[in-house]
Amino acid sequence: MIIQRYQLYIERTDRTKNMARFYALSIEPNLFGEACLTRRWGRIGTSGQILIHHFEREKDAVVLFLELLRQKRSRGYGTVLQNKPLNR
């Protein structure tokens, strides 16, 4: 059972390289009570790609969530000042 829902939306833009990317992460329960980590990424303005990981324990999903966040931050992704919905 999920105790808390996690959601994150970060972007990386570089006009000199014509780069405008987004990365979204969320942890939510599925119908069976498992934790599902959903990853979405792609060019800003597109629906992008989706990958879903299923975990029996919320802790395992949170560990991957934080690891992916660390990787993206090291590559230059940052939070956006305005709220953006995860579903486009």
Rank of each mutant, 00 (worst) to 15 (best):
I44K: 03
N30G: 09
L64F: 07
L68A: 06
Q7M: 11
F55L: 10
M1P: 12
N83A: 14
G45F: 03
F55S: 00
R73C: 03
F65E: 06
F22G: 00
R73E: 02
I52A: 05
T13D: 06
R5V: 15
F32W: 07
N83W: 09
E11F: 02
C36W: 05
I44Q: 00
D14K: 06
V80S: 07
V62P: 06
T46M: 01
G45R: 03
R43D: 11
P29E: 13
E28S: 15
A20K: 00
I10G: 06
A20R: 03
G45K: 09
L68R: 15
E56R: 02
L37N: 04
M19C: 10
K72M: 08
L69Y: 15
T16Y: 05
R70F: 12
L64R: 13
V80W: 06
R75G: 07
A35N: 07
H54D: 11
P85N: 13
M1E: 07
K84F: 14
L86R: 14
F55A: 03
N83M: 08
M1V: 08
L25Q: 02
T13S: 08
K84Q: 15
H54C: 10
N18E: 10
Y77E: 03
R40Q: 00
Q4N: 15
L69M: 13
E11Q: 09
L31K: 06
K72T: 02
V62G: 12
I44E: 09
N18Q: 06
T16P: 04
Y6A: 11
Y6D: 12
I2L: 15
L66I: 06
L25E: 00
T13C: 07
Q4I: 14
Q71M: 12
Q7E: 14
E11R: 05
S26C: 14
K72N: 08
L51N: 07
L37E: 04
Q4E: 11
T79H: 11
V62H: 09
L81A: 15
R15P: 03
G78S: 12
